[in-house]
């Protein structure tokens, strides 16, 4: 009888492991098998912000890019993640979540929301954190790109003026003081 219990106690870990394969929530699997918005945006475009982050603990890398329209709204999002299923699902979910939002709204999305939505287990929480870091990094990149523009206004028309100033130096003086 004792032997039976002994065997049973040793057999149980295998059983949990087998069940473990199914521990991923169906939403994770859906985002993993059919990730949304995979790809790249031209990172030199002035209306594109690129976020690059990595999680050394699991060796994941994530790139998340946003295109922001003249109203300050995220009009397009693309991502590329090399990592585990949860990291891919988290970034895929994030791209769907931020499309159509303002930068401020997008920057407020918490990893806990992603984790909850995808029902990530505690050991995979850092994957959702990576997605949060990625969108923030993209927003930061976009804003720093914008702040380097010599114009205070970010209208497309004004950018053209900037390009002209580099060739014709006479026009520059009126714009330059506002830069600093």
């Amino acid at each position: 009888m004792y032997r039976a219990t002994l065997l049973k106690s040793f057999a149980s870990p295998t059983k949990t492991l087998r069940i473990g394969a199914r521990l991923y929530h169906e939403k994770v699997i859906s985002h993993y098998e059919q990730p949304r918005n995979v790809g790249s945006l031209p990172k030199t475009d002035i209306d594109v912000g690129t976020g690059l982050v990595g999680a050394p603990a699991c060796g994941d890398v994530m790139k998340l890019q946003i295109r922001v329209n003249e109203k300050g709204i995220i009009s397009d999002v693309k991502f590329k993640t090399f990592g585990c299923g949860s990291a891919i699902a988290s970034s895929s979910y994030m791209t769907e979540r931020v499309k159509g939002l303002t930068l401020d709204e997008a920057g407020k999305i918490k990893n806990t929301e992603i984790a909850k939505e995808l029902a990530l287990p505690p050991v995979k929480l850092h994957c959702s954190m990576l997605a949060e870091d990625a969108i923030r990094s993209a927003i930061r990149d976009y804003r720093s790109k914008r702040s380097k523009l010599p114009e205070t206004q970010s209208n497309a028309g004004f950018i053209n003026v900037t390009q002209n100033t580099t060739t014709g130096e006479t026009v520059t003086s009126s714009n330059l003081p506002s830069t600093s």
Binding site: L52, G54, A55, P56, A57, V61, F82, S137
Partner: peptide, 14 residues
Amino acid sequence: NEKLEDPEFITEIM
């Protein structure tokens, strides 16, 4: 929870 924020290195790996 450590973050890797070396864009050059991440780009290389990517």
